[in-house]
Design a protein around this nucleic acid. Structure first.
Lengths: 149, 149
DNA sequence: CCAGCTAATGATACAACATCTCATCCTTGA
DNA sequence: TCAAGGATGAGATGTTGTATCATTAGCTGG
């Protein structure tokens, strides 16, 4: 990698449950299972995949918990070109995504120029800027290498 | 508006059908109706809305044609924060979107800094950059004014 | 420690969006 | 004009996510 701009998570966040507790949510069996599973898991996933990996848990519960963790900032959501949503453990800072269109891997990236850009645009907008989404689509190094075999 | 950066389309493109013909697609009745309707229409829309506005046409046909026009570059697709897709007539140049989260209006914008940013990032990516999506979410001037009434 | 309030669960239905199937129709090129 | 095969449309199917609601089980206060 040319710079330290992009990175994957080295290890999962151990503070997943406390985050829920701090928000006044109950620590239930299903949430524990989901938290443990996420801590062990690597890579990005869809809500449906997650539900499939946790037999015995209701689909609705998995979807509800994903949304909860999304609001809590534990998970973040990336969107593929076709609109499909993938989730992954969230880094502690504001960031955007590299999404591999071949394998679905999601990497975070930060770049000061991004926020500079948003700030520059904000002053020109005929209205109130309330958010932005920036996703970069790529073929990751692994997929490129695999394709050349 | 502070600059000429953002704009809506002044008039629809008359070359909608030739574009299809050039690509080897047949000029059929349903496609004609859709093209005429789009030329007359203003603003953005969902595929479902479009189907509703064209009674007598099969839903599948409308969806298929939207995708066709998307590939042909006649339409472009913007994505709302919740993942919903809205379509609008595409400008002739590469651009990104302002999307009003209140009324769904889509405006195009171009900013040289965007492409500069993408170029800067491209050289740092551990892989091959194949595309990007940048959407800015806002409350447009009209919605702000309406909210203050 | 226990009771009870209430959030959380999970089975299921529902909803929105999009695609697939396939018999039939219609454009097109010869 | 006619045949070939792309296009259509009704409906089934798939995907993703939310609403409903009776039941279960955390938490808290006594």
């Amino acid at each position: 990698m040319a710079t330290a701009m992009a990175h994957e998570h080295a290890d999962a966040r151990p503070d997943l449950l406390p985050t829920l507790e701090d928000r006044g949510y109950r620590l239930t069996g299903p949430r524990l299972r989901i938290a443990e599973h996420l801590a062990r898991r690597r890579g990005s996933f869809t809500a449906e995949e997650l539900a499939g990996e946790l037999p015995g848990l209701g689909r609705a519960t998995v979807y509800r918990t994903v949304k909860l963790l999304l609001d809590a900032g534990v998970l973040c959501k990336a969107t593929l070109p076709d609109g499909a949503a993938r989730y992954s453990l969230d880094g502690p800072h504001h960031h955007h995504h590299f999404v591999c269109v071949s394998c679905g891997k999601v990497q975070e990236f930060r770049h000061p120029a991004v926020e500079r850009l948003v700030r520059a645009i904000r002053s020109d907008v005929p209205g109130e800027l309330v958010g932005h989404r920036i996703e970069l689509y790529m073929n990751c190094a692994e997929c490129l290498a695999r394709g050349q075999e």
